[in-house]
Write a protein that binds this DNA or RNA. Structure first.
Lengths: 199, 199, 199, 199
DNA sequence: GATGAATGAGACTTCATTCAT
DNA sequence: GATGAATGAAGTCTCATTCAT
């Protein structure tokens, strides 16, 4: 059955996110789902491989979310809104992996960091994802600009990069400042961006 | 002598940044400066303490840079320019710790992440630093607004938060996309921010 | 069917000879013949038992060869020639077990060594085989001596022991010295032995 | 102090000879000399390295004995006698390594085998040793033959190879046959060899 | 007859830490 | 102030073995 393998990945992901790759022992993961250490090696040839599979399933979900929101929406404002609706991002991640990232997005970022440090392959995936997102946004801005719906004198490559950086940075920094309400931040960013590009 | 202690911290910082807290052994640090493992225990009661001291010296430098630029400058544009002159940030860090963060800012961020994960105390310091930066910016914006030099109908609390998030996010994301020139990004951000708040 | 069992033994023998008892996992043997680990346990109650059966089939073949050559030949020179025709020994082993011992007799000896170490029972078999060979030779020498066909003032017990030791030793040492041609050695030994015992 | 390192090697050698490389755990070696597992890693970076060092010290002793006997003696008979005085070989080995090889030469050979299997480097050393021994003998025979002290119509290259093979084979096979007295075998071999080459 | 999941014991190895010198 | 031997806990990984299916 594939059940055990999935259980391993889910539990591993949870522990990796909560603690740290190196700190989490296979023993603890195994115990966490009621099997023994050796059992993990039925499904994964090493701890690294398990971690990599976890990371891949995370990036798959991220891709699904990020790029999905771009293709489905037509209105520029909707796309921006989707991109900056942090609540939604967290909710989806939490649902997918049964981890409450809402109050602990820092852990999530950290895990991604570790993953990229360990696996150049994974770093490449993340990198590619960002580039795709940036290009998707850029493409959309430009098509709007061509239709003269938004200003033409803006470097949309930079703007789209900034927006993505803003999403990541906001999530990061918000983890430190309790006073900041990300939902409000999202709305503000969407508003000011619209204003900035409006004719 | 304090010389050895400083050498330990510098070498440790270098290794921690290049590799990873857990991966770096005290042995390697000791060897790196020509002493033996046991010698480190003269100056630090544990590996954790050594790491914490490293982190503190980093945060001190960050604080020195971030807040310093705000108090010294009077012109708002200068402050923003300083905040977004990534080259400068990297150069100062590299000079201080003899680590080339320029081509490897990712490692730097990673180390900070690990530090925050391990030491709530350190996380608090970073957190406080961000809050101070945000409040510093906010205060400045407001004083400018009161003098009717910039628009009054903007939530400057959010804006200053966004700017800081943008700095962090840009550094983060730029690590993945080779096409992006951070210097250009910095200028663009300063420009559009000025435009946004101008009356 | 007995087919699978034989396949297991053959493959196991091959791997044991190529690598090492401990190094060879049941898994690899199973994979080597397209079954799974558990399947081996239908035919063998343990890895040790499988190994023992392999060893027994090897010793059977050795016995068949060694003693067979003695009983079939009548002429003393023929017997000695058969005993020292290394090529033939290797060929037969290779044919029986599908392993090229010719270029790798060392591995073969090693496997026998391991077998003896693990199974006193197997060691006893080998031991008995040597004794039988030695006694077979001794008996033949004596009967020739009694017929006054060869010298009588020779300790044939020792001589036969030496001949057997020489076979084993030559195989062993030849593995280290590339300059030595075992076929030539065999002829030389037969010649000098004949000379030594001739009246 | 070098004491502990030597103790480790000696105890390891003893266990490796008695049991088997794979079977012997570092734990047992450590316990055997009253230290802990980790302590071994002060002196050896791995189990393999420890084993290799053991093997090297064995081969050094072998070299010392084998080649030493050849250079010191002038009389050909003395050299042959030294080569085939098995008692002496065993005694020296036992004294050097505190292992009773006398009653258990098989274990010794086995260990050498394992060593050669694991370390091509070690196999090369053994190989070289045999070649040196063979060449040493050959050289001596030829110089005697040139002085017309022994027969000239003998292939001394082969003879010297056979003598060495005989030493090894005798030790090997004697382990199986309780009836054989190696000392007697040695004398017989020396005698018949002298006879064979005498003019 | 055979599979495949799972166990459990044991191995090597790493390393922060201690401490006598 | 520093060394270096030694500890001990923990971790990854391997595999023979079992057993339900």
């Amino acid at each position: 059955m594939k059940e055990t393998k999935d259980k391993i990945i889910l539990k591993a992901l949870q522990y990796f996110a909560e603690h740290d790759y190196q700190t989490v022992s296979l023993n603890s993961i195994a115990k966490g789902i009621g099997i023994t250490k050796g059992g993990i090696y039925h499904y994964f040839s090493s701890k690294d491989e398990l971690f990599l599979e976890c990371m891949i399933s995370v990036v798959d979900k991220m891709k699904e979310f990020s790029l999905g929101s771009m293709s489905e929406n037509v209105e520029l404002e909707d796309i921006l809104t989707a991109l900056f609706s942090f609540d939604n991002i967290f909710k989806i991640m939490a649902e997918s992996f049964d981890i409450d990232f809402m109050n602990n997005y820092y852990n999530y970022s950290y895990m991604i960091f570790v993953g990229m440090k360990k696996f150049p392959q994974f770093r490449e995936m993340i990198s590619k994802l960002y580039v795709e997102m940036q290009q998707g946004l850029e493409f959309m801005f430009i098509s709007y600009a061509e239709k003269e719906l938004i200003r033409k004198d803006i470097n949309y490559k930079l703007l789209s990069f900034e927006l993505i950086a803003l999403v990541e940075g906001a999530i990061l920094v918000a983890g430190f400042s309790k006073e900041i309400d990300l939902t409000e931040v999202g709305k503000d960013i969407v508003g000011s961006t619209i204003e900035r590009i409006s004719i």
